[in-house]
Design a protein around this nucleic acid. Sequence first.
DNA 1: TAGTGGTCTAGACCACCAA
DNA 2: TGGTGGTCTAGACCACTAC
Lengths: 251, 251
Amino acid sequence: MIPAPQVPQFSPLYRQIASLITQGLQAGEWKPGEAIPNEFDLAARYKVSQGTVRKAIDELAASNLLVRRQGKGTYVATHAEQTTQFRFLRLAPDPAPGATQPAPHEPLSRRFLDCRRQRAPAAVAHAIGLAGGEAALQVRRLLYFRGRPVVLDEIWLPAALFEGLTSTRLSAYQGPMYALFESEFGVRMVRAEEQIRAVAAEAGVAELLNVAPGAPLLSVERVAYTYGDRPVELRRGLYDTATHHYRNQLG
Amino acid sequence: MIPAPQVPQFSPLYRQIASLITQGLQAGEWKPGEAIPNEFDLAARYKVSQGTVRKAIDELAASNLLVRRQGKGTYVATHAEQTTQFRFLRLAPDPAPGATQPAPHEPLSRRFLDCRRQRAPAAVAHAIGLAGGEAALQVRRLLYFRGRPVVLDEIWLPAALFEGLTSTRLSAYQGPMYALFESEFGVRMVRAEEQIRAVAAEAGVAELLNVAPGAPLLSVERVAYTYGDRPVELRRGLYDTATHHYRNQLG
DNA sequence: TAGTGGTCTAGACCACCAA
DNA sequence: TGGTGGTCTAGACCACTAC
């Protein structure tokens, strides 16, 4: 007889508070960039001590939902910030030969190729939680560093969450796509999982990225999640790594 | 006039305690796998409250130097553990088509090709902190999943730290290389940085990995650090991603 | 100077593990 | 049952920011 899985029922107070705060974020009670109430006010509201609220906020700050600023307050994290800009795009320019300092981030520009309402292939629909037949949006875009194309992205989104998203609207917005998602559609990307492979460039792709057909490219497949671990984006990026690399920290 | 950089002098007590504990780890006072003293004993030793020790340990556990086990004690982390096994090797088998569960980790075997004492190229010497002319060890090995070669690693180490490391000794050891390093040479890898690119397989590499010449491979360049952020390994891995992928979490 | 987050303490009690 | 880490509280004080 297989023993029933021992599900630990116990959940400490601070985790319950963290969950309540997350619900407030999800419900839009506090918007990205805004400050949440101070620790004592939250403690009074939830009828716990300040230390417990503090530990709850610690957790949320550790998972990048909140940002603490000593002396000022605790703020809702946003993708519309310089410092958070490259949290999800891990591509960096190669260091110049002999350089001791890592190369700084280069100016980046975006070009949107198309944005179509379309039936998603089964694998895609499954990944972003679409029931049979629900519509999806497919966006394709190029990223340029120093005027050269380096990344080709193909992005799938549930159409229901992004009604009114068009190529022109994407092009008009200056700044990261995820910042537009959170300000215009109330969808905030919280975490993502990536699968990385090396592939050979197909003809059409090669032309867009200005590389030889068959050239090795990095394939980066990402599923991005919003609050409550709901998957809301599938993205396949093809990176030309001739002058750039994907950087990663192992802890 | 450029303002002098404002160096924050203030360091909270718990960080000083964390630093003292780290020194103990570095000095080998507590060995990988062993338990450190309980929180009250440490508090008495450092003349602070248990809460402060606790916060210090929290930090060290967060950076994977220590492992807490409720009801048992706090232990020095080790690479010789199943759970930590794949913390630095981020290669996972592709899920079977239509599978809902991610594929489990596959049995892995290692084959060492050679281990030579050798002058390191300048770039390598610089990366692992070798002064001019100091000797290095170069190790090459293959990793097999299900009997098939998937990874070719070329590894550079400072010879001074690994006196007596030979191909036969590497082959004799069952388990991760980093576990051997920590138990036999007292060098514990704490964190690493990786740069990932897509490259085309050269002839010799292609043969070893059993792929066509020119096939796209993942190039994973790693610098691994021990205590005190000292770089002690440079590793270049070539991964065949036909049936596997490099997985990454973005938080 | 007022308000916010950050640190430190002391003590009570709870959850988990092993013997 | 005893020992360990884990939680929660209450209060004092420190460091940083803005006005």
